[in-house]
């Protein structure tokens, strides 16, 4: 398969700092396959410097507005910022309406901020499957801090916790009783909880409820107890406090050697995932597996062979990597 893109040329322009080349390489990463692997091989040694902060919470909590405010705050301290804003892909049409930029307009004319909207493309974890890879690219592009905004989430879209150094959970007073329901999910991954829309009259009570539920949380000696902060993205209040808490959490990770451990953990899980992906691709592409499965399905249909016995037999026959069919480009 010939490549659609001139990867070498793009990488050269990327290293010169050209935004258009970086943007195109993100597209390459999104599309996956060999081209994406080539890009990741080339940039990997330049990664590991950017601090990654994830922002998650229910739809309409003000994630985009808050991320935008924070980005400006960090810019005033001269940090170079990358923003990854994820919105859902329609399971019906495969299309997506990516609208997070509407709340980020004040950033568009600042070349120190790179905003990329990603569609979730079938991923169910609240982020895109290539979030790690896009972070890597922004990291290698020299961004000091990467702000990742998830799709509006409920209880189970928690993948951001595996990608970010600091997870900020954004709630609003109307989350109200919802907070109870979220205790088993969202409430477990936040390092910092934000009660946004603090201009609403019941915000203070809602923030206190969150603090109460955090107090009940078991935290090991010397561990991080999540902090709560009130903000109003609309009125630009509390943004400095939030930035301060993010800094505090980062210092906590650094002081306890957790940054390095977190990075190791993330890389180990990436190796595992990449291996699984590759093995799955090989299995799917294997003519031998297809042949054996289609040859034996009649027995399964007739009730003479259980699906599990068939798979056990396949397991004995197919040795992944040796006889699982052709691999591409190697």
């Amino acid at each position: 398969m010939s490549s659609r893109y001139d990867i070498e040329g793009l990488l050269a322009r990327f290293l010169e700092g050209q935004t258009a080349a970086a943007a195109r390489l993100i597209t390459v990463l999104e599309n996956g396959g060999e081209d994406a692997e080539k890009v990741l091989d080339a940039i990997f040694s330049r990664t590991g410097n950017a601090y990654r902060v994830g922002f998650t919470g229910p739809p309409g909590a003000g994630k985009s507005s808050l991320v935008s405010r924070l980005a400006r705050r960090f810019r005033s301290e001269d940090a170079k910022i990358g923003i990854i804003a994820i919105d859902p892909t329609s399971p019906f049409s495969g299309g997506a309406l990516l609208g997070d930029r509407i709340r980020m307009q004040s950033l568009f004319e600042d070349p120190g901020v790179f905003v990329r909207s990603l569609a979730s493309r079938g991923s169910l974890g609240g982020i895109s499957n290539c979030t790690d890879e896009v972070c890597d690219l922004m990291d290698a592009f020299g961004k000091d801090m990467i702000l990742i905004e998830t799709v509006g989430v409920g209880q189970s879209e928690l993948e951001i916790a595996e990608k970010a150094h600091t997870v900020v959970v954004i709630l609003v007073p109307e989350s109200g009783d919802g907070i109870q329901a979220m205790k088993a999910g969202l409430m477990e991954i936040g390092d910092i909880f934000v009660m946004n829309k603090s201009d609403h009259s019941d915000a203070e009570v809602a923030a206190m409820e969150i603090e109460d539920s955090i107090k009940l949380k078991q935290v090991p000696e010397g561990g991080w107890r999540p902090l709560v902060v009130m903000t109003s993205a609309k009125e630009d209040r509390g943004i400095g406090d939030l930035a301060g808490l993010i800094r505090k959490h980062r210092e906590y990770l650094e002081d306890n050697d957790l940054m390095r451990r977190k990075r190791k953990k993330i890389l180990l899980s990436r190796v595992r995932n990449a291996l699984m992906d590759r093995m799955e691709r090989r299995l799917r592409g294997s003519e031998e597996v297809k042949r054996i499965v289609s040859g034996r399905m009649e027995e399964v249909y007739a009730g003479r062979l259980s699906p599990y016995r068939l798979v056990r037999e396949l397991d004995g026959i197919v040795t992944i990597g040796r006889s699982a069919g052709p691999t591409h480009g190697e």
Partner: peptide, 26 residues
């Protein structure tokens, strides 16, 4: 979107500079 495309909508009152920069980044 319904036709299967990824559509970025940036809202009202954009300057040409904002539009071009968004188009490049995206």
């Amino acid at each position: 979107k319904d036709a299967g495309m990824e559509v970025i909508y940036t809202g009202l009152h954009q300057t040409p500079e904002m539009i071009a920069e968004s188009a490049v980044q995206e």
